[in-house]
């Protein structure tokens, strides 16, 4: 693609982009239309949750630990300059739970799962496995798409809570080594300003991110035409598009939640 192709007009990137957006929206619509209807692939949904969780558990743990340690190290100097080093656990918990934890975890998962789902469904498309499900009256949309979307919607918040916990643990380890902070003091300060609505809203918003990753990647995989090259492209696009949409959705969700529940200082 060249930059000149970005200019509007028939067949241009802009028009194509709009078309794709419309198709993606109707794909998401199809999810809501069919989710309620049988067959309910309960077993397959659980096995997808297992897959999603197992595939990304280690990755999420390492991400969480790194976030916690690095944030604590970075903030310590800044806070010390204002003589507010005692507020480190407080600040760490707020930024991890409210923003960095959910968004970082979701972005890492978008990379891991977006590529996986895009490639898996895409290669099933080009090798006619989706057609084979279709002619065996096995409802590929239910079996492949709905199961993965539900799995991601459920698993994203769970992994986020885990990443938050590991990040706080990482922050505590840093504090322990740097200033020998007692764990009771650390965790008491950490949770002193966190409200339940913060914890709940900011964790549950990752369900929306999970929905985005799963639908975008399934959509791109489901509509692959051609061969292995196109499957690779679909996987790559799945990661790019879901990451961008996560960041966009985050802005919107944060805006709405501040409107509904007020900001941190507005309590």
């Amino acid at each position: 693609m060249r930059f000149t192709n970005l200019l509007p007009g028939r067949g241009s990137a802009v028009t194509r982009g709009l078309e794709r957006t419309g198709e993606l929206a109707s794909f998401m619509g199809r999810f809501f239309g069919r989710f309620w209807k049988p067959p309910y692939e309960v077993r397959e949904t659980f096995s997808q949750m297992d897959e999603v969780g197992a595939r990304s558990f280690l990755l999420v743990s390492v991400t969480g630990l790194a976030i916690g340690i690095v944030m604590a190290m970075q903030s310590r100097g800044t806070l010390a300059a204002f003589g507010a080093e005692y507020a480190l656990p407080n600040m760490l918990a707020l930024s991890v739970i409210k923003e960095i934890g959910p968004v970082f975890t979701s972005l890492v998962l978008a990379g891991r799962l977006g590529a996986g789902i895009g490639a898996e469904i895409g290669s099933m498309r080009v090798t006619e496995q989706i057609d084979a499900l279709e002619v065996a009256a096995l409802k590929p949309f239910h079996y492949l798409v709905i199961t993965r979307v539900v799995a991601c919607v459920v698993i994203f918040p769970v992994l986020t809570i885990w990443a938050d916990a590991i990040a706080l643990f990482g922050g505590y380890m840093e504090s322990l080594f740097m200033s020998g902070t007692d764990y009771r003091v650390f965790f008491q300060t950490a949770f002193s300003t966190i409200r339940f609505t913060d914890l709940f809203m900011d964790t549950m918003k990752t369900s929306i991110f999970g929905f985005i990753v799963a639908t975008v990647s399934s959509y791109l995989g489901y509509n692959v035409r051609g061969g292995t090259r196109e499957v690779g492209q679909a996987a790559m696009r799945a990661v790019v598009v879901s990451s961008l949409l996560i960041l966009l959705a985050d802005v919107i969700v944060v805006r709405i939640s501040i409107m509904l529940f007020g900001g941190i200082s507005g309590s």
Binding site: E23, S26, R30, G33, R34, D131, E134, A137, K139, R225
Partner: peptide, 22 residues
């Protein structure tokens, strides 16, 4: 051409109500 064929596949989907839309 790939773009022209992209949506065709939806035709074979199972759902009655969606049929017309796709």
């Amino acid at each position: 051409m790939a773009d022209g064929t992209e949506r065709r596949d939806d035709v074979k989907e199972d759902d009655v109500q969606d049929e017309a839309r796709y």
